[in-house]
């Protein structure tokens, strides 16, 4: 079950873009704007094989953070949040596995995806995709959106027990 606070879940439900930060080969942070999807427990992001360096980074170091920061992408839902977690790459079948796992979530947030999928012939490699499943462990919430305010802090129950 999910433990993220309701305002953050609301942001995840509407966010059209979030900034996923991964740890690069040389230990530096690398940030990618991606559409986050949320099933109430895990956060799912996805990547075409065309832009798959981030997948290589995650497989080497699964620590990630996701920033929900753009008021436009959040469609007016107030606040900002940063979620830290561990990620795993689901890539057994980049052709169709992502469709089974996340297409419904994606479609709900961005119905236009069906129109793009019909054009798969035009961009075949763009739709060869891997799924990034993030298990949140910590969360910072700035309810006002101002990060010079002290954030509220939330920790996954497992993490808290440890």
């Amino acid at each position: 079950m999910g433990w993220l606070p309701a305002p953050v879940e609301r942001m995840l439900d509407v966010a059209l873009v979030g900034e996923l930060t991964v740890v690069g080969r040389d230990g530096r942070p690398i940030t990618h704007p991606l559409i986050p999807l949320y099933d109430g427990e895990h956060i799912y992001l996805h990547s075409s094989t065309l832009f798959s360096k981030k997948l290589e980074h995650i497989k080497r170091d699964p620590h990630v953070s996701l920033s929900l920061s753009d008021p436009v992408a959040l469609k007016g839902v107030p606040g900002r949040a940063t979620i830290q977690g561990t990620a795993r790459v689901i890539e057994d079948d980049p052709h169709s596995q992502w469709e089974r796992l996340i297409l419904d979530l994606w479609r709900r947030k961005e119905p236009v995806i069906d129109a793009f999928l019909k054009q798969r012939i035009a961009l075949p490699l763009f739709f060869e995709r891997a799924v990034i499943e993030v298990t949140p462990t910590r969360c910072l919430l700035w309810a006002s959106g101002d990060t010079t305010d002290e954030p509220q802090r939330f920790v996954a129950p497992r993490e808290e027990a440890a």
């Binding site: 930060t21 942070p29 940030t31 910590r138």
Partner: peptide, 19 residues
């Protein structure tokens, strides 16, 4: 209009904050 600043913390997790 704003940037997201990131670094990797001591515990190995990236920290990313809009500012």
């Amino acid at each position: 209009p704003f940037v997201v600043v990131s670094w990797v913390a001591e515990d190995g997790f990236p920290v990313s904050v809009a500012t």
